[in-house]
Amino acid sequence: MAATYFSGLLLGFSLILAIGAQNAFVLKQGLLRQYVFWVCLVCALSDAILICLGVFGFASLLSQQVWLIQAMKYFGAIFLFFYGLRSFYNAYKANNGLVASEQPTTTLVQTLILCLSFSWLNPHVYLDTVVLLGSISAQYMDKVAFASGAVSASFIFFFGLGFGARLLRPIFANPKAWKILDVVIGIVMWMIALSLLR
């Protein structure tokens, strides 16, 4: 059981560590110290639901719904394009670094809607959590232990990223560093959007 749990944990970490739209959003919220707990919780719970769906049999059903994957690709690409555009605009407009950004520009509800969009509108998330983890889990007898390991990886990663971001705050007090972060986030969003349309 422990070996299966750690297999799920390590695989979960390997899939989640890549820089993506969701991770960039969590990092930025962590730097701003805005709704960090709720953002981390929503991301981790979303991953947990998708992992469980994959491990316990939803992968085969999802793979048959080609139209759903296609629709999610286009919605996801449009969402990421506009969020990337917003990041570029913020980089152009802002001149005061992290200190000026500390006043919340969105409400908790708006932030959580954004967070849910990053979690559920990106087909890559479904391919990683539902399809890939689901198919790999088939080789394990103890699916609960495997799923628990992968879910643990999501909780550890998102809460570590969100609350660990404060260690980088001195760097992002510099207006140039904050501009660079916004530009990098914009580039990441547009690259993912383009990859969805290919």
Score class of each variant (00 low, 15 high):
2 A>L: 06
8 G>W: 00
10 L>A: 06
10 L>D: 08
11 L>V: 10
12 G>L: 03
13 F>E: 08
13 F>H: 07
16 I>M: 05
17 L>G: 07
19 I>H: 03
20 G>H: 11
21 A>N: 06
21 A>S: 09
22 Q>M: 08
23 N>L: 00
25 F>Q: 08
25 F>N: 07
27 L>S: 12
27 L>E: 09
29 Q>I: 02
32 L>Y: 11
33 R>H: 12
34 Q>A: 02
36 V>P: 15
37 F>T: 09
38 W>F: 09
39 V>P: 11
42 V>L: 15
42 V>E: 10
45 L>D: 00
46 S>P: 03
46 S>K: 01
51 I>S: 04
52 C>S: 14
52 C>Q: 03
61 L>R: 13
62 L>Q: 11
62 L>Y: 11
64 Q>S: 05
66 V>A: 05
66 V>R: 15
68 L>W: 04
68 L>I: 12
69 I>N: 06
70 Q>H: 05
70 Q>D: 14
71 A>R: 01
72 M>A: 01
72 M>N: 08
75 F>P: 05
76 G>W: 03
76 G>P: 05
77 A>D: 00
78 I>M: 15
78 I>G: 12
79 F>W: 15
79 F>A: 05
80 L>C: 07
81 F>A: 09
84 G>I: 12
87 S>D: 11
89 Y>H: 10
90 N>Q: 06
90 N>K: 02
92 Y>E: 10
92 Y>S: 12
94 A>T: 13
96 N>L: 00
96 N>W: 00
99 V>T: 13
100 A>K: 07
101 S>V: 01
108 L>V: 12
112 L>V: 14
113 I>H: 09
114 L>N: 13
116 L>N: 11
116 L>Q: 02
118 F>R: 02
120 W>C: 08
120 W>Y: 13
121 L>N: 07
123 P>Y: 15
124 H>F: 14
126 Y>G: 01
127 L>E: 03
134 G>K: 02
134 G>P: 06
134 G>T: 08
135 S>V: 12
135 S>K: 15
136 I>L: 09
138 A>D: 11
138 A>W: 14
139 Q>A: 15
140 Y>P: 05
141 M>D: 14
143 K>A: 06
144 V>H: 00
145 A>N: 01
153 A>E: 08
157 F>D: 00
162 G>Q: 00
164 G>M: 02
168 L>C: 11
170 P>M: 09
172 F>H: 01
172 F>T: 00
173 A>R: 03
175 P>V: 09
175 P>S: 10
176 K>C: 10
178 W>I: 09
179 K>L: 00
180 I>T: 14
182 D>N: 15
182 D>G: 01
183 V>A: 09
186 G>Y: 00
188 V>E: 06
189 M>E: 06
189 M>H: 12
195 S>K: 14
196 L>K: 08
196 L>E: 11
197 L>V: 07
197 L>H: 10
198 R>Y: 10
